[in-house]
Amino acid sequence: MELKGQGAGYVTDLLEVLGDWIMEGIEEIGKVILLFFKALVWAFQPPFFLRNTIKQMLEVGVHSIPVVLITATFTGMVLALQTHTGFQRFNAESLVGTVVALSMTRELGPVLTGLIVAGRAGSAMAAELGTMRVTEQIDALYTLATNPIKYLVVPRLIAGLVMLPVMTVLSDIVGIYGGLFVSVTILDANRTVYLRRTWDYLTFNDIYSGLLKAAVFGLIISLIGCYKGFYTQGGAEGVGKATTGSVVISSMLILISDYFLTAILF
């Protein structure tokens, strides 16, 4: 009897912990969505913090350009190498350019850019807002009759939404040219044929579906970065947790939403 009672105790304990997790998870999702809608409402009310928005665009976009370009170039290059190895087996080497172009524009351009910006700019947002939270700078904004969601969150959301597609265009281009470079110099492909195969099969749909993905990823990165920072608790340790959490969560959300966006868009 006693043993059975104990066993039941463990089961209820386990269920309780599980229930707590689920409740916390739901609460967190709710808070993220609420933050998004608050930001949406504030975004359309003057005054507009143009200078903050431009500063964030530089932070998200311009400062991430070197690392995005390097990543995209090498991805394009390795894609060419790998595709060539495979396609050689059935004499389809001439289609390497097509594969590189489609992979970059539809998939790798937006996803890799998203992951890099999540690690670079998303984490910085969480750290900065988190520090502002624990040092009461966010409260100070309230006391100066300035809404912190409007002042801090809205510019970051706009920056993510606008800059990610821009960076994706860049990464598409350098990725394609990275593939071209490897094909021409190492794999003895013909430059003209490669480029023709690239443009012949590439449709607008490929490009803009990639850019639409990028915009969604940009929004996810900024929203999660801001959310984690804005609701940071517990001093320096809390800021660290918020920063790590923002990268982990936004990276996962990027990959998950990538699948669903692809499934819906085509």
Binding site: M132, T135, Q137, A140, T143, L144, A145, T146
Partner: peptide, 30 residues
């Protein structure tokens, strides 16, 4: 809130702004 001014425990100055921009923050906004 414009009727209020508040001094925080650790001052809570905006560390991305200079001293005069901190002091003038409310003036700039309002």
């Amino acid at each position: 809130r414009k009727k209020f001014g508040m001094l925080f425990q650790a001052a809570a100055l905006f560390d991305s702004l200079s001293v005069w921009e901190n002091v003038g923050f409310g003036l700039k906004q309002h």
